[in-house]
Design a protein around this nucleic acid. Structure first.
Lengths: 268, 268
DNA sequence: ACTAATCATTGAGCTAAATCAAGATAATGA
DNA sequence: TCATTATCTTGATTTAGCTCAATGATTAGT
């Protein structure tokens, strides 16, 4: 397999952990060096995550409520639809998809979550998760018990502000997806999707032009409201036009400008 | 004739209104809440809005930051895309749509907002509104300056909790829309839309079976990713099957159960 | 009240993407 | 390792919803 540089999977791998707060049910897997750290203060994602702009003392208080080291294997569920809501989660490494099971059997993917992103906010409103969330690859997360986050947010204005912003960003993102689904052609959806993944990887310091897709074509199709076949055909077509290179799940964005033209400028 | 608005129209007259458009950053004539007879405490929507479960003293503090009496005429903008974000708004009467202008000219409706609902959260994340919001009919709103809401939320745990819940509900709702747009047929979308409007009216004490649609067929189409023609055809078709009655924008849901069957059970 | 403009309906045909079908490739596990 | 399953690709065909077009109904402005 041609290695598309150090993509997603390699970043952020788990914590070295002197004082491991391993929980009883926490899986095995030994943690690699350098990492996202055992504390928010030493996590390389902290400028993209809940702790933005917290001072040292504040970050320590946040650290105290964060539960780390709950690595998940591919296919493990982080939570399931209808589960009681207790926590939100920050993706530390790996990736997740959220999905709902339609009554007609087929699952529908509602989101993908990459390192530095927050998953689980679908349970805040009615204290029950509206989606299931499943690891697309080996992954680790920080669990943030919501009640404690609320309490701490009362004491730390910056934390409250950050969390409002994170939720606001989720709302804005969902509305953008709404626009994509309600008005873009299949080709525009795919181009937009690739550019979106690209900038989300860029955000955590990974290459915006060469990356690994952790999800299947089927997942992408469900997310974008297309069939697997259409996704596959369009990736092939974009490659033939030299806009991208595709090697199974390794993607290279060869001509980002023309991809942006396809989606029509004002996309993410 | 059942109509969306009604209710709080008793409250005060207009701001000076030399200009038709009340922009978010336009000067506001703030009247003392008690002189208008309207305060959160006396608002019939207060159990559905920000003040849920606030005690008297807390509600008074909220009242002090809420700016009321900004009636808008049909077609007035509440804010425009790219406007600086200052406030969120609670719809008191009337209704709004939010939309974005695509580079390709056509506007895309991203949401409808009915009495008791909060509009403007699309600006929280990056302090700039991602959408425009326009009144679909004569409407009045409560403006809640966001910075003050944040400050007050630090002091009133229940208020903070409520606002987290409201944002969470928006996220959950957007994800449901995602599912609708990515996997429902045109007929399912229309049925689901009608049921959604129905329960939103029911929430504020209006009839869930007979109501007025404040938006055009075109708006509905943009929102649902369908053309005007398809929306029109499907409403006619549902009427022919005796599931609904349509008289221009007056809708009666005749057979809610079969509408639910169409969308496949687990819808709103 | 009258005119213009917007909104809604209906029909006929077209097309983008779905469906159906068949293989090829890659991942997983005994 | 090989066998099994999951994923991906490509082709042929169908179809749901779009586009184009024309007309009627409402609403808004003077």
């Amino acid at each position: 397999m041609p290695s598309v540089e150090s993509s997603n999977n390699s970043i952020a791998v788990d914590a070295p952990s002197e004082h491991d707060t391993h929980r009883a049910n926490a899986p095995i897997v030994k943690l690699c060096p350098h990492s996202t750290g055992v504390s928010c203060g030493s996590c390389r994602l902290n400028e993209l995550c809940l702790p933005i702009a917290l001072n040292e003392g504040e970050m320590e208080q946040l650290d105290n409520i964060v539960e780390r080291n709950r690595p998940l294997k591919k296919g493990d569920h982080l939570y399931r639809q209808h589960d009681g809501f207790k926590s939100i989660f920050a993706v530390r490494s790996g990736s997740f998809k959220s999905y709902v099971l339609s009554s007609s059997g087929a699952g529908r993917v509602t989101g993908f979550y990459l390192p530095g992103e927050i998953i689980g906010m679908d349970g805040i409103a009615d204290r029950t998760h509206a989606n299931s969330a499943i690891a697309l690859e080996h992954a680790s997360i920080c669990e943030i018990p919501f009640n404690q986050l609320e309490s701490l947010s009362l004491k730390l204005p910056v934390l409250q502000h950050n969390f409002f912003s994170i939720m606001g960003a989720e709302i804005t993102k969902d509305q953008k997806v709404h626009t994509i689904l309600s008005s873009y052609s299949a080709e525009q959806r795919i181009a937009s999707f690739l550019l979106g993944i690209s900038s989300r990887y860029a955000r955590v310091g990974l290459s915006p032009t060469r990356f690994h897709l952790p999800m299947t074509r089927g997942d992408i199709g469900e997310y974008l409201g297309l069939t697997v076949e259409t996704v596959s055909r369009l990736l092939t077509a974009l490659q033939k036009r030299d806009l991208i290179e595709v090697d199974n799940r390794e993607i290279a964005l060869v001509d980002k400008d023309r991809l942006k033209e396809i989606v029509g400028a004002d996309d993410l």
